[in-house]
């Protein structure tokens, strides 16, 4: 499937994201050995499918925590995890976590990662972080669950409206 980048000027080069739906995205996460979930500032402000984006994020983070995975909260995203139990979170800046991920031996839970999943990060900051990983972290695959198509990821949702986004996130959760 072909999808234009959310920001039409964001045309990085010949290698662009493969477009996936919620079900495939869920399978990708499920099949990863040690996925790292990275959530950003939009968790506190965005909605999808009539629900707060943070509700989806917490659900995904809980399911990943049950597998021993870590969720990195960037910016002030930690605020939505306040009083949430059974979630393993760490606070880092987006650029800090992306910087560390260039090291194939680094892991937020002490083990190297094979997949990085972005959700709710400021569009351009997320795009640039994915670009760093595309070029300098060949040991990683990247997936974004935002409603905005990110060409720098390996896998991305297409541009979609908030209703469809909610459905896609539900599909992801069902797979985990």
């Amino acid at each position: 499937m072909i999808s234009e980048a959310y920001k039409s000027g964001n045309v990085p080069g010949p290698l662009t994201a493969v477009i996936v739906d919620g079900s495939i995205a869920g399978e990708i996460i499920k099949n990863a050995k040690n996925p790292l979930f990275v959530v950003g500032s939009m968790l506190a402000t965005e909605e999808a499918g009539g629900k707060k984006l943070s509700e989806y994020a917490i659900d995904i983070a809980k399911r990943l925590s049950a597998r021993g995975c870590v969720t990195i909260t960037t910016a002030n995203a930690i605020s939505v995890f306040k009083d949430v139990k059974d979630v393993n979170t760490k606070i880092m800046g987006v650029v800090e976590v992306v910087d560390r991920l260039q090291d194939p031996n680094w892991g937020a839970n002490g083990k190297p990662h094979d997949l990085v999943v972005f959700l709710g990060i400021h569009y351009w900051l997320g795009s640039q972080g994915l670009a760093t990983l595309k070029h300098f972290a060949p040991h990683l695959r990247t997936l974004t669950l935002c409603f905005m198509n990110h060409p720098n990821a390996d896998w991305s949702f297409p541009n979609m409206n908030k209703e469809d986004w909610g459905k896609a996130l539900e599909e992801v959760i069902q797979k985990l």
């Binding site: 080069g13 010949p14 972080g129 760093t132 070029h135 300098f136």
Partner: peptide, 19 residues
């Protein structure tokens, strides 16, 4: 580094893909 463009189009050797 976080490249915003994977290409180099600075000279007429290219355009080159640096991905």
């Amino acid at each position: 580094y976080s490249p915003i463009c994977d290409m180099c189009c600075f000279c007429v050797f290219g355009k080159c893909d640096l991905t």
